[in-house]
Design a protein around this nucleic acid. Structure first.
Lengths: 212, 212
DNA sequence: CTGGGATGGTTACAAATGTTACAATAGCGT
DNA sequence: ACGCTATTGTAACATTTGTAACCATCCCAG
């Protein structure tokens, strides 16, 4: 492990040792499925490097993006699930290449009392996940698609650090739970307004885009 | 306290004693605001009797119903918030008269390690809250208003145990984050289909309604 | 009993989103 | 080069939802 600076700052030495001993370092390539619907959850992921996205689908298979997880974050939904050996309600996919440490469920519980640093980390994670879900609900319930699309592009820009978004209209439509034609239409509108430029599988955000 | 049977079954005697000692029994009348946006949270509610609803609003003040909390449930969003002295992102209103025990934030943390029964209760609560939020997202993202309205009425029926829903069209519109005219329209459609009967401030669900 | 607010019915219309269909083109593997 | 598939553009249309306006009725407070 190399990028554990953040964790070293907030975790006790003993906890770091145990994470090294009992955690499993895993690597996923872009597009890999890290967790799937209906699978049993027996570990909690702590993201070291990269970004993964968490999705939810309805009965018909239509999916919607819930939120992203990136460096130093972890999915506390997995936590509360695997304490009760539940099946997953969500799917997680590597947005970019991802390194994560998988913590076995037996240790989750044990460390909670043993290491205050762990407890704080977990509680902060719960809180962050709730806030993300609330943000997601706010976006879906109160904002029109054009606003949601703009927010989506900004989030992609933030996560990748680049103003060039690599994604097909089809993928975007999926993650916003709408249809491709609708996204193409809105993107074309943004292009006509001089906010973005469209290429095949690429969207370049112009300076004007920030003002959206 | 009278209706503590559920808690007596899952909590340790010592924990029950401490809840008695440090918890504050509070009563709210229907419509009372239990928690409001932007207020600091310094206690976690455990519902003893009655039902409360949890709402979220957008910038313009429009609100949407997130979920209900009823007997024996507690709001773990409050938990994770008050450990970090955060302001509330949500509002809670008594749907019916509510008795709850307010646990001060200092004890939340302490009991977590001291009483496994408490830890399990809290973790199950986290999990339930996540599932409720996911259900909420699924409903908003994937279902049309008519389906959401039907689900809303069924939930009200389940919670009140009665097939007569007391609510104005205006209130329903608010909680589903739409307008009164739209709800009136959909309700009238349901009435024409022989699923419900409309009265002033009342909606009677007929037998056929179950088949929706 | 009465005026005014709350509630609900209804219409007409606007805006947003979904759907279907079809064409054009880029890029990929053989 | 060729054919295939994925991607994007676009038009036409349907459906869903939002908005504004107006009226009728109910009910409570004074």
């Amino acid at each position: 492990m190399d990028n554990t600076g953040y964790f070293e700052a907030i975790f006790e030495p003993g906890l770091l040792r145990e994470i090294n001993e009992f955690g499993t370092l895993k690597h996923f390539k872009e597009g890999d499925i890290i967790m799937d619907y209906g699978k049993y959850i027996h570990m909690m992921p702590m993201v070291i490097n990269g970004t993964l996205k968490v999705l939810k689908k309805d009965e018909t298979g239509k999916e919607i993006l819930l939120y992203y997880l990136s460096s130093n974050e972890s999915c506390s939904m997995a936590y509360s699930c695997c304490l009760e050996a539940k099946k997953s309600e969500v799917k997680a996919i590597a947005e970019e290449d991802v390194d994560l440490i998988a913590i076995p469920h037996t240790k989750l519980d044990e460390w909670l009392c043993k290491y205050p640093g762990w407890k704080n980390y977990i509680m902060r994670s719960f809180n962050l996940r709730f806030l993300e879900l609330l943000k997601s609900i706010e976006s879906i319930a109160f904002h029109k698609l054009d606003d949601r699309l703009i927010a989506y592009l900004k989030e992609k820009q933030r996560l990748s650090g680049s103003s060039v978004i690599r994604a097909s209209h089809y993928l975007i439509a999926d993650e916003l739970a709408t249809s491709r034609v609708v996204i193409s239409r809105l993107l074309k509108q943004l292009e006509n307004d001089g906010k973005i430029v469209l290429y095949r599988n690429e969207i370049k955000l112009l300076n004007d885009f920030d003002m959206c």
